[in-house]
Every structure is written in C-alpha cells, then in structure tokens.
Amino acid sequence: MNLFRLAGDMSHLFSIVLILLKIYTSKSCAGLSMKTQELYTLVFVTRYLDLFYSYVSLYNTVMKLIFLASSFGILWYMRYHKQVKQTYDREQDTFRHYILVVPCAVLALIVNNELSVTEVLWTFSIYLEAVAILPQLVLLQRTKNVDNLTGQYIFFLGAYRALYILNWIYRYWTEPKYRQYLVWAAGLVQTGLYADFFYYYLKSWQAGEKLRLP
C-alpha cells in the first residue's frame, strides 16, 4: 500500500469521525443530508458484501467494518436520536434517491467487468459512490450558511478521492497489471463534483471566513 492510498483512507475515515463528532457534541445534524448518508450506506453494503467471500488484509477488513458501522451509526442518530432527529432539515433535503440509484443500477448492468450478482453490485457501488454526495451539495447550496464541521466533512471527503487519484497514478506506473478503468472513470467524476465546492471552500478559508456559497 502506498502513501497516497493510506492518506486517502485516513482522510475518508477522518471525514466520518468529523461528522460523528459534530452530531455527538452538538446533538445536531443541521446541514447534513440524510439522503447522502443513506446512499453511502447503500454503497458500503453493496461493495463490502465481499467481506463474506474474499479476504485481502486485516487492514481492509477492519476499515470496511468501520465504514459500515459508522454509516449505520450516523443514520441511526439522524433518524432515532431524540434531539438529533429534530434538527434534520427535512424540508430542504428533498433530493430523490431513485434519481441516482436507478441510473447507477442500469449502468452497472450494462458496463461491468462480469455479469454476476456480486460483480454488478460492486460496480453499482462504484457508480453510486461517485454521485452520492449530490444531495449533500444541493442541501449546502440551499442552506448557504455552512457550519465549520460540515464544510470540513465535505472537504475531507473530496480530499479522499483526490488522494485516491494520486494512488491510481502511482499504481498505474508501479503495477503493470493494475488497470481499473471503470473505477478510475467513476473516481474522476466523483472528484470533479467537488471542484466547485473546493473553490469556494478555499476562497472562504483564505479570507478567514466561514464557508459561504453564492
């Protein structure tokens, strides 16, 4: 495992810690999209089915379990915690799941490495992950005033993908057999979705202000 990959994973993990910290300390999930959290949970469930049939390393297994548990944990807080659930922006978070889930499922059935249940589900998770942030970005645009932790959460999620791209470039040159075109294409799309956000995030940060969206 190279440093880019490790840094990417840590950035991903850190983003999840931030969101749990925000919810736990402020007892609030204001500004967070439940739709995005549900989509990520679906991503993890469909991708990490391989926990049952393939083993890569202890690191991978532990990380997969952490991602699964934390995504269910976040959802539990947003749905059932007495105080937290009252802070959810239900009226603003109107993005429909099927707008993303259906096209990803269709695409996974058409463009995949192998037409088997596990492979199609895995491919579906790759496509869905690429666009799962959209409800969150839409909510961000609507609520405009973003608290620091939510801004940082999205920043680290974006950084995770950017670091994975560096990891892929590194592996492309060092491992001749490593060619994951489908994953790379989805990863590029995913990182691209953050471009706009990054621009405003860095601008706000430079000006020493809270993140403000136009």
Binding site: V56, N60, F67, N112, N113, E114
Partner: peptide
C-alpha cells in the same frame, strides 16, 4: 469487458 483485477481498495 476488461480484465478482473483483485479488489484490494476500499
């Protein structure tokens, strides 16, 4: 279809 590579990323 491309070659199926071992999935060792998260």
């Amino acid at each position: 279809a491309t070659e199926n590579v071992k999935k060792d990323e998260l």
